[in-house]
């Protein structure tokens, strides 16, 4: 958290429950899927916050809530100082100019019946004022150029492109309205390895050139490492650890974060073999019936009675590094599971 920079997103007490109902004609609510359960975070201007977690942790739902695509159950989401949870549909639509989204699957996120021109041009049909005097054709060509697509392909259909090119089309569509914030939901995980780096580099360039703020949602800690300033690790609807990227990667305090880092494969046989990998037992429990107390306790090797009785709250372990655990790992404990930073040939910034 850097108080000197402007906050572009401030989320507080965010809750999203999906009711589970039974019956067709007379529907009866029998429970809730607690997709997002009391989540707080902020994102500063030009900053990238990565939300990391496994399937079902609520990271994608959080992304959709940020865009106002679904109503919240409770809590507030301030985008550039305005709470979007209380906005009317019309106000919300106008607000979409400030915050846009890049989706995971470049195969389903583009309408197969529309040409590239109409896909990238659609934002301007919805918000004609965003054209700012240009014609739609000019605007579409500029955007294609910006994301590294040959503007000659403007009349082609999505299925004529490869995955990486489709993802560029999705990026161009998200940039059209000149948003200040982009929510990227697993933007490279469906792409080929050799193309992932191209798209990641594009996202980095755009952030630096346009001063964008990103909420980068991913399950892949290695990818996140390249782009995030800060990280929030989610498990079953809650943030269990959050902080600037360096302390989180080098000395994770939550056992779950440590497990995630130690499970992420390293493409180096010796380093990989030298690590002490934490193997978690079993699967993530159902968010419809989360464990009492600490939600991670059923898979945690450090769990004790207190973890079942009392829910741990996020508390600072130093320098804006927050962890929700009764028995956080000491830096010494964490060190055996992570890999010491290897000096790389490329300069690290920040």
């Amino acid at each position: 958290m850097s108080p000197t920079r402007d906050r572009v997103i401030a989320v507080s007490g965010l809750v999203k429950y999906y009711p589970i109902t039974r019956g067709i004609v007379f529907q009866k609510k029998i429970g809730d899927v607690r997709a997002v359960d009391h989540v707080d975070f902020t994102v500063a201007q030009g900053e990238t916050l990565a939300i990391v977690g496994e399937s079902g942790c609520g990271k994608s739902t959080t992304g959709r809530l940020l865009l106002g695509l679904e109503p919240v159950t409770a809590g507030s989401i301030e985008i550039l100082g305005q709470d979007i949870t209380t906005m009317s549909q019309k106000e919300l639509r106008a607000k979409r100019r400030d915050i846009q989204m890049i989706l995971q699957d470049p195969y389903t996120s583009l309408n197969p019946r529309m040409t590239v021109a109409s896909i990238i041009g659609e934002p301007f049909e919805i918000h004609p004022e965003a054209l700012a005097g240009r014609t739609k054709q000019e605007a579409v060509r500029d955007l294609m150029d910006r994301v590294g697509l040959n503007p000659e392909f403007v009349n082609r259909y999505p299925h004529q492109f490869s995955g990486g090119q489709r993802q560029r089309i999705g990026v161009a569509r998200a940039l059209a309205l000149k948003p200040r914030i982009i929510v990227a939901d697993e933007p490279v995980s469906a792409l080929d390895v050799s193309v992932q780096a191209q798209v990641m580099n594009l996202l980095l360039d755009l952030r630096d050139d346009l001063g964008l703020s990103y909420v980068f949602i991913s399950h892949d800690l290695a990818v996140v490492r390249q782009i995030a300033d800060r990280i929030a690790v989610m498990y079953l609807g809650k943030i269990v650890e959050t902080g600037p990227q360096d302390p989180v990667y080098s000395s994770p305090a939550h056992p779950y974060t440590a497990a995630l880092i130690s499970a992420a494969p390293i493409p180096d046989p010796e380093l990989q073999a030298s690590r002490e990998r934490i193997e978690l037992e079993g699967d993530v429990p159902s968010p419809a019936d989360p464990p009492s107390g600490c939600r991670f306790r059923t898979r945690c090797w450090k769990a004790q009675q207190r973890c079942a009785d009392e829910e741990p709250l996020l508390r600072d372990v130093g320098g804006g590094h927050l962890v929700a655990c009764h028995f956080p790992l000491t830096p010494e404990e964490a060190a055996s599971h992570v890999v010491p930073e290897v000096p790389s040939g490329h300069a690290t910034d920040s």
Binding site: A197, M200, A222, R225, Q226, V342, T348
Partner: peptide, 12 residues
């Protein structure tokens, strides 16, 4: 070109 969790490189 693949990101590595043990190395922080901004541009791969």
């Amino acid at each position: 070109s693949i990101p590595k969790i043990d190395e922080r490189e901004t541009r791969l």
